[in-house]
């Protein structure tokens, strides 16, 4: 582990961080740690409920090098760099339209249109979408991909009807 050094170091100030974090196009985020540049990944601790708070920067060995408690505290470049990095780690398929939900043989088949294009995926019949307090609906398919509906009520009525048997939003 990181020998607990970090915890003792505390948060760098706004200006410091801007000199310590940068996003390299095509490569990712890097952090100046103990005077060395280290490639890191940004991970949101509460990706759905508080996506812009408590962002953990971890190295390739999954050790946390830095915790950014709130994006708002930082200058634009840092925010951009972190957001850029988070966009990838936090990417999930956003459902725009549900073209069909069917049950066959103990599987539930979803046909959806997402921001990434059309897709067919499957869940167990006993698997219900998760609805968060803020109204977002999540479905996780058998492979582990996550699909999100940010605002179910903005879906077209057919899609809403299909969803309503499976989740209360």
């Amino acid at each position: 582990m990181s020998d607990g050094k970090l915890e003792r170091e505390g948060m760098p100030s706004r200006e410091d961080l801007s000199r310590q974090v940068e996003f390299v196009e095509g490569r990712g985020l890097r952090l100046k740690h103990n005077d060395h540049w280290v490639w890191v990944t940004a991970k949101a601790s509460f990706p759905w409920t508080h996506p812009e708070e408590f962002i953990s920067l971890v190295n390739e060995e999954a050790e946390e090098l830095l915790m950014v408690e709130s994006l708002e505290d930082h200058v634009l470049e840092v925010r951009k760099a972190l957001k850029r990095s988070l966009a990838e780690a936090g990417f999930c398929f956003e459902i725009l339209k549900i073209t069909g939900v069917e049950e066959r043989l103990d599987l539930r088949e979803w046909q959806v249109e997402t921001q990434s294009g059309p897709r067919v995926f499957h869940t167990k019949v006993s698997h219900w979408p998760t609805v968060l307090d803020n109204g977002q609906v999540f479905v996780r398919d058998l492979h582990g991909d996550i699909y999100r509906i940010i605002d179910p009520e903005s879906l077209d009525s057919k899609s809403q009807e299909r969803l309503s048997a499976l989740a209360d939003f």
């Binding site: 990944t41 990838e88 780690a89 936090g90 990417f91 999930c92 398929f93 991909d145 996550i146 699909y147």
Partner: peptide, 12 residues
């Protein structure tokens, strides 16, 4: 190296 995301992974 592989970085895991919610629905995407990046291979480098």
């Amino acid at each position: 190296n592989i970085i895991e995301g919610f629905s995407s992974h990046r291979l480098s």
